[in-house]
Design a binder for these strands. Sequence first.
DNA 1: ACAATACCGGACAAAATTGTCCTTAATTAT
DNA 2: ATAATTAAGGACAATTTTGTCCGGTATTGT
Lengths: 141, 141
Amino acid sequence: MFSKACEYALKIMIYLCSVEGEAKLAGLKDVSGAIDSPEAFTAKILQQLVRANLLDSLRGPSGGFRVVQRSITLQEVVVAIDGERLMSSCVLGLKECSGDHPCPAHDKFMAVRDHLNGVLSTTYLSDLKGGVIEGNRFLKI
Amino acid sequence: MFSKACEYALKIMIYLCSVEGEAKLAGLKDVSGAIDSPEAFTAKILQQLVRANLLDSLRGPSGGFRVVQRSITLQEVVVAIDGERLMSSCVLGLKECSGDHPCPAHDKFMAVRDHLNGVLSTTYLSDLKGGVIEGNRFLKI
DNA sequence: ACAATACCGGACAAAATTGTCCTTAATTAT
DNA sequence: ATAATTAAGGACAATTTTGTCCGGTATTGT
């Protein structure tokens, strides 16, 4: 469904959202520890999220990463890492798959995709952080 | 969503279903031509589908491939190529993601997955062949 | 029998994804 | 100022996925 990088990205964002509402920074080690991901690879994904303006970063001692100060949907995270592919491209891989040039599965999957897009575009990171803070939702194992 | 191999597999199966209801065989060239896929790679996927008992094959002149004589769901095709991964594994990649050890997105995606599984397990190849035969659904471009 | 056809299967190659290493640049605290 | 800390970024390595090539085997028609 999502690439491995995108799975990490979602966990990163949810984690950073759950770690203090205010201004606290989490470093690379904190992040990769919290989500149990390879450190160097996690660094690359953090960079992508910073460039996509979903995270702020600060260097130097006591530096780290922080979620940008606004509401962020799961869709924004997915698009930042995996692009629009999942949202818009044909499940059978047709270059042009539209109402007047549909693949055989077009209608069936349209409904599923709309459902998925609905969830991704209406679910905010803040909707998910609660369970992590309370300790009844998990980011690893 | 699906691997490229799985996309090809679905197109292959739909095509073979649309090409005569009865006993006609289609060769590798027919298939890869009909779905616009690389021939040698298509051959590999055809082999996998034969081994998964979704296709029959016959060698020699006038040989080729044919859909096995029974109803086949999209789910069977997807599982044969991509495995259970899409159906059962956690969208955030947790090894164990269940009711009592859920990831933060567990509930949200459970609904999407159920929807997807519903479509895959209740849609038969025969439900899709009509549009291809009539020429208003397409397997390439 | 023999030649032509068409699938089988193993080895190999290319590309994409995932993951690592190491140097540089920025910032902080002493 | 200097040393310690932390992100940035480039190069590289491993793995997986996608795709190719070619000799082997079965089958058909003559």
